[in-house]
């Protein structure tokens, strides 16, 4: 694995437990991982395997129960909310699985929101360009309520890109999209990696989408259950089938 100095994201024996005692759910059971700068990583796994939790912990949106998270080599686990927020604001973009946009703001305002929160001057032209990139040219004045689910997801991607973050986390960004639009979005993420040397971490259930990544991580039951480098859709699909067939039992990771 890559050394600490060059990793965009590094996780050290990361655990996350919801609830206490009897009712405790061990969403993450100890994850060690480093994602190099300028890499495109897909995260796959059965539903409930801890993918969203993993993503949120890595992005500093959630605090792990144990272990450490380093963003760009800097440990963030012990930062206070203010510092963490500012760090997230400047370095991280996030696309949620759902409920991504503020209903009271227009599409364009939603895209520009991170800049405004950071106190930077809103770059309207870039917002328009990003909206055009995600196929929403001319939708800038609409409200999220007037968009379809997939369109909302695309606005969220535009918003995640607006600050030119070092790392972009996307939770099923293509989950609600047709294959054509999904391909556009994946191209966009790919371009961010290739031309802006951003690091992208994407959760997906779609083997085709996963195959666009440099590497695919498999999660099962809160543990890493293997990975694939330079994946193909069939290889990914095969791995997923075995994973699901095993009922989420974690075996030693096979590279």
């Amino acid at each position: 694995m890559a050394t600490t100095g060059t990793s965009a994201v590094e996780l050290r024996s990361l655990t996350r437990t919801y609830g206490r005692g009897e009712a405790a759910v061990h969403a993450l059971r100890g994850i060690d991982l480093a994602l190099p700068r300028g890499s495109f990583t897909a995260v796959m796994g059965p539903s409930g395997s801890g993918k969203s939790t993993f993503l949120q912990c890595a992005a500093g949106l959630d605090r792990p129960t144990g272990g450490e998270v380093l963003l760009g080599g800097e440990p963030i686990t012990h930062l206070n909310e203010n510092k963490l927020t500012k760090l997230r604001r400047s370095r991280v973009g996030f696309v949620f699985q759902s409920f991504n946009l503020l209903p009271s703001l227009t599409v364009q305002q939603n895209v520009l929101l991170p800049l405004r929160l950071a106190g930077a001057s809103p770059d309207r032209r870039r917002a328009q360009a990003l909206l055009a990139d995600v196929g929403l040219d001319g939708h800038g004045r609409r409200r999220p309520g007037q968009l379809s689910g997939g369109q909302q997801q695309r606005v969220a991607i535009a918003r995640a890109l607006i600050t030119r973050p070092e790392v972009i986390f996307a939770d099923e960004p293509t989950g609600a999209l047709d294959t054509g639009t999904a391909r556009d979005i994946l191209d966009l993420l790919r371009r961010a990696v290739d031309t802006m040397s951003a690091t992208v971490v994407m959760v997906t259930h779609d083997p085709v989408a996963a195959s666009r990544a440099d590497r695919v991580l498999f999660l099962a039951d809160g543990l890493l259950a293997g990975e694939l480098h330079t994946p193909t859709p069939t290889a990914v699909a095969d791995r997923m089938v075995t994973l699901t067939a095993r009922g989420g039992t974690s075996l030693g990771a096979a590279a």
């Binding site: 203010n82 927020t85 996030f94 949620f96 409920f99 929160l117």
Partner: peptide
């Protein structure tokens, strides 16, 4: 959501 996008508690 605002917090996730980068709003500080103060904001």
């Amino acid at each position: 959501l605002l917090r996730a996008i980068g709003a500080t508690p103060r904001q």
